[in-house]
Design a protein around this nucleic acid. Structure first.
Ligand SMILES: [Zn+2]
Ligand SMILES: [Zn+2]
Ligand SMILES: [Zn+2]
Ligand SMILES: [Zn+2]
Lengths: 129, 129
DNA sequence: GGAGATTTTGACAACCATTTTCATTTTGCC
DNA sequence: GGCAAAATGAAAATGGTTGTCAAAATCTCC
């Protein structure tokens, strides 16, 4: 629909982990893009609403976005040091969530699942001092 | 340690679902408690740090707290209409999170899991109009 | 009990990501 | 070109949360 939105989407695709709106905005400006912060926010929201990017909340309440390779439902294994992110499927979790909801008479079940850890290369650099 | 902290803890225990700091503050004042908002924030943080209450973030970035019955690791099934909350255990999920982290060389694995739905009584009241 | 040190409290200001506003610019269409 | 509708972005507003700092409560030792 819009050139701006595509530019935001591209910036996100070039990133490895999850990025905040402010983050994306700063990077785009750095690379000479002429875009306003408000538009970045709007583009990210639209992309998230359209399911083209994934969103999650950091511990300090910031929304961060990622253009994932998989369009199917999946979850994330995120390194809490470098942000390196792996997309993971979890059929067992999907079934569990549905089952636990059903057992208690709940309907229209949704769920949020995120896994955090320290990735191999970060572990290595810590050991190296 | 402090009377204020206990008062906050008690207020939370009397609540059914997750409550925000502002929420707890308003209720305490309503009941005549003489306490400041800053102190409520500090008490909730201390309780959360001590593992005496559970915290989670709402979609709009608000931190909400709950004094759960179980002191063991567990997750929550939350009604998105009335906030009614059930504490649920998920051994399968625990194992899955560890496994998926390990498979990708991650260590110090943690995870966040929340299940949302519409509870039976809310479904009923919707049907009743 | 009391002086002084230490901790806790809370009114208020500061923070900061996000949203709203609204005037300007760009786009879509004839 | 002309014009309506949509997009843009600078600046102001919002709102939950945190920082500040002086006053109040609590502890400590005599
Ligand atoms: Zn993803
Ligand atoms: Zn899932
Ligand atoms: Zn709990
Ligand atoms: Zn768990």
């Amino acid at each position: 629909m819009s050139t701006r939105r595509d530019a935001v989407h591209d910036t996100l695709r070039r990133s490895e982990g999850f990025r905040s709106a402010q983050d994306v905005y700063a990077e785009m400006r750095q690379h000479g893009a002429k875009i306003g912060l408000t538009t970045v926010y709007r583009a990210l929201q639209a992309l998230a609403d359209g399911g083209q990017v994934d969103v999650l909340r950091t511990d300090d309440g910031e929304s961060v976005y990622r253009a994932c390779a998989s369009g199917d439902h999946h979850h994330h294994l995120v390194c809490r040091r470098c942000g390196h992110t792996v997309e993971v499927a979890g059929p067992a979790v999907e079934r569990w969530a549905e089952a636990v909801g059903g057992e208690h008479g709940f309907t229209e079940i949704t769920h949020t699942v995120e896994v955090f850890g320290t990735c191999a290369s970060c572990s290595a650099s810590v050991r190296a001092g």
